[in-house]
Design a protein around this nucleic acid. Structure first.
Lengths: 153, 153
DNA sequence: GCCAAATATGAAAGTGAATTTCATTAACGA
DNA sequence: TCGTTAATGAAATTCACTTTCATATTTGGC
């Protein structure tokens, strides 16, 4: 438990650095809002929509506008610390990107819970399929929709 | 070639029957528009957006409105002869559903081409993953995004 | 620290696709 | 054929972004 916590802190710090470097590199500016939004994002659920984050922020920072949250999340994605995902419910969500890791999702159609998983073998088979069509994979998306363990009870 | 054609005709006929039965069963009505839209859909590309189909229809049937195409495609999905899919480009597409078959997609990010494929082993692995989380799969979505063979040249 | 130039912000307006409304029209079944 | 019920098409509305624009901040150079 303790080690997990320490790793978490280090990961957050690393992401803040990545984002900060990105901002500097692009000639953009560090602002109070971006810092606040980054903190909120890093300490949030792993799959936040713009609306989710905006509402969460509004409690302590009512002056931060929706457009700023929207633009900042885009920047997170551009800098590599976040990724846009869509589960077909009409909302774009942003998930945390862990260095070098790609995971897929189990989405509960009953309660909306999202479980992440990784499977090497599936990834390998995907590459084989792509190869057989002369196709070069850039990204992929694998989602399993259904009923989660909790909702089955 | 000839056999493929015959199968195609039979499949179309079967789907028309499925849709017609669905309509009857629900106490809905058969209309000229629904027939026309169904014909157009069945003889179309496998991945049509509402807009695509609406424009295609407008040539010969300029009186059919966008809303009718929209509503009819929804009915196709409800009846089981079509399925809604989204490739993240902001348009909902409708693809043909073949009895008992589920396929996945290779989506070219360069030219937009969509290639379908099936892979038993991947499906099996998906079930295993779901099982290990006590999750019951209802549907799934697997898309590989990248550059197709044509665009690589 | 102060200034000028460049970027960021928030409120509001604009977009584009999907969805709904409503007056009118067309099917179905007795 | 008639009456009831559903379908249609045009237009309005909704929804989730996305952009605009006037104002405010940040930053690099004195």
């Amino acid at each position: 438990m303790k080690i997990t916590f320490i790793i978490e802190v280090l990961v957050k710090r690393a992401k803040k650095k990545i984002f900060h470097d990105f901002i500097t590199h692009k000639g953009l500016k560090t602002t109070r809002q971006r810092d606040v939004i980054l903190d909120a994002f890093l300490s949030s659920d792993r799959h936040m929509s713009i609306e989710d984050l905006y509402l969460k922020l509004r409690v302590k920072h009512p002056r931060i506008g929706y457009a700023t949250v929207y633009r900042t999340l885009k920047l997170f994605a551009e800098s590599g610390i976040a990724r846009e995902i869509q589960f077909g419910d009409g909302q774009t969500r942003y998930e945390h990107v862990a260095e070098g890791e790609h995971h897929d999702h189990l989405v509960c159609t009953h309660c909306g819970a999202i479980i992440e998983f990784e499977n090497e073998t599936i990834e390998k088979l995907q590459s084989e399929v792509a190869d057989s069509y002369g196709f070069i994979i850039e990204t992929h998306k694998l989602e399993l929709y259904g009923i989660c363990a909790k909702c089955r009870k």
